[in-house]
Computed example of a mutant assay.
Amino acid sequence: MMPVNRRRFLAMALSFPAVASAAVNSPSPSGVPDLVEAMLTRAHVPRHSNELWVLIDDQESTLSVFRGNALLERFAPISLGRAGAKTQRVRGDSVTPLGEFRINRFNYESQWRTFMAIDYPTPAHARMALESGVYSQTDYEDYFEYYRRYGHPSQNTALGGAIGIHGLGGADPDIHGRYNWTQGCVAVTNEQIDRLAELVGVGTRVVIR
């Protein structure tokens, strides 16, 4: 279990306060502000000149590692979820979530060679789920209570979880080169995930756009 970064968590909690339950009783998805899309307009800007961060581009089918604005590595093509990439996903829909994340765990014994988990769903995803009616007010409050207690979001809500970057393991490289085939994760080749694991670590910022 990772320790809670209390300063970061408090900032998230203040940025996405609970709203009245009436918003849940009268959902209007078409009128819900896309908080994630708004965040993505500035997510590609490095936090500082020496920041190591990852940019995953759905349209270009690339994963790029930067140090500040300097490109260190670029992997292509990559594979995303079978149902594409969107700012909001729900459990089981095979969508890759767009947004700004942090790597929060490594699993070197994954069936996909190495699995780098990201902290999806973020507070922005949770807030959008509340305002669109996917989360109830109780779900929303439970989300923050779980995050406060454990230092990462629950992976067992209506928004799903277990999203990350991984290799192929024993998957077919030919399929990987031609189709988006994952259940919502970002996949690269085994050689590429090995290289990526040398570059990034827990806490590395990951932008999926």
Rank of each mutant, 00 (worst) to 15 (best):
G81C: 06
I175W: 07
H166A: 00
G164H: 00
T189M: 02
R148Y: 14
E60P: 00
P123N: 04
R113M: 05
E198C: 10
A43D: 05
S30H: 09
D139E: 12
P123D: 05
S15T: 09
P46T: 04
P153G: 07
E141H: 10
A187M: 01
G92I: 03
A126L: 00
T87A: 08
P121Y: 12
N25R: 12
V188F: 02
Q111F: 09
V65G: 05
R113F: 03
N104A: 06
Y135H: 07
G167W: 00
N25L: 15
A162H: 04
S154T: 15
D194Y: 02
M1V: 13
L199H: 06
E51F: 07
V200R: 01
H48K: 12
N25Y: 13
S132N: 13
P29Q: 07
N107G: 06
A83K: 05
S21I: 07
A43H: 02
R82Y: 10
H125T: 08
T189S: 13
R42G: 04
G99V: 00
H176G: 12
Q155N: 11
G201N: 13
I78C: 10
A43Q: 04
G177W: 04
S136D: 09
M1Y: 11
F75I: 01
F16S: 11
A70P: 09
D174F: 06
G161E: 02
Y150W: 15
G81K: 04
Q111D: 14
V45M: 02
P173F: 06
M1W: 11
A85Q: 11
R67M: 12
L35H: 10
I56W: 00
Q137C: 08
W181N: 00
V206Y: 04
P27W: 02
E145C: 10
E191S: 08
L10V: 12
R178T: 10
N180Y: 01
F16E: 13
E100I: 08
N180D: 15
C185V: 01
V36E: 03
N180G: 13
P173R: 08
A20M: 09
E37Y: 09
